[in-house]
């Protein structure tokens, strides 16, 4: 009998797949990643669609961060193929990923805190007017664009000349998101976006996350906070021991089931426990 829910789930997933639009922005197939003898990721298939927020869940070391780093160009996968926007890609660096419209906002690592707001938003992608090949900064144009971006995000940052290190956690997330928007990102990956944020700031960041999806971008969030995930995500994928063990739409699951999947108490989680 234990196989029955798995079977039902399998059929559901099959119908989901058939209903799913064929043009998911990201199509990851059979992604694996080994570090020497350690297998961090095994045979992961994931579709990420424009206009939705996808949450990646799992315990520490379950593989969600490794998968995100593959998407972000920080890890080259050992197996599998990655298609983004219809092209098969092989990212050698985060810069490659950025050039394909993938922006990643790492927890605590997204910004250079010694630099100003505008410098962070444009770092590596500055607006320049080259003179004899020397990339002179077009500072007026960048300041104007920063005001537009922060205005769109409804982010209240009083002094855009201030170093990012002097901003609150929520303001930093807004700057990091403005940076992703400025890069014209079509997939925005947020690693623990609400960790270390005050309640009111968490609310703002979650609203921002929804708005990004509603504007037609694909959004992936990695989070330990089940309440935040249920508030913002359309779909959830649970990782365990380097495998994807479950995929659920928000309307078809509840926090208890997700927690059971993460901790291994759920029958579906046993897939990952086989050798």
């Amino acid at each position: 009998m234990a196989q029955l829910p798995a079977l039902v789930d399998g059929v559901e997933r099959l119908t989901d797949m058939m209903q799913a639009p064929p043009d998911a922005f990201v199509q990851a197939r059979g992604i694996g990643k080994r570090f020497g003898a350690l297998t961090a990721l095994r045979d992961v298939d994931i579709d990420i669609r424009a206009g939705e927020v996808l949450a990646l869940l799992g315990d520490n070391g379950a593989g969600k961060t490794t998968f995100v780093k593959v998407l972000a160009g920080a890890h080259v996968p050992s197996d599998g193929t990655l298609r983004i926007g219809g092209d098969t890609v092989r990212f050698a660096s985060p810069r490659d990923a950025a050039d394909h419209g993938v922006a990643t906002i790492y927890q605590e690592l997204a910004l250079s805190e010694n630099l100003k707001v505008a410098e962070n938003i444009f770092l590596g992608h500055e607006l320049v007017r080259p003179v004899l090949g020397v990339p002179f900064l077009d500072r007026a144009a960048m300041r104007a664009r920063v005001r537009v971006l922060l205005g769109e995000l409804d982010a209240h940052i009083p002094d855009i000349e201030a170093p990012v290190g002097s901003l609150s956690g929520g303001q930093r997330q807004a700057v990091a998101i403005a940076r992703a928007l400025n890069l014209d990102a079509r997939l925005i990956i947020m690693d623990e976006p609400t960790a270390a944020l005050a309640v009111a700031e968490t609310r703002k960041v979650l609203n921002l996350t929804r708005r990004l999806a509603e504007s037609g971008r694909a959004v992936v969030i990695v989070s330990h906070n089940i309440a935040d995930v249920f508030e913002v995500a359309d779909r959830m994928i649970v990782f365990r021991r380097g495998r994807k063990i479950a995929e659920r739409k928000r309307a078809e699951t509840d926090p208890d089931e997700i927690v059971a999947l993460i901790t291994g108490a759920h029958p579906d989680a046993r897939v990952a426990d086989q050798p």
Binding site: L109, S112, L115, G124
Partner: peptide, 17 residues
């Protein structure tokens, strides 16, 4: 800005592209 970003944290500067 690139010099100072590297000085602040080289790995982070690389992640930022």
């Amino acid at each position: 800005p690139h010099l100072l970003a590297i000085g602040f944290d080289e790995d982070r500067a690389r992640l930022m592209g």
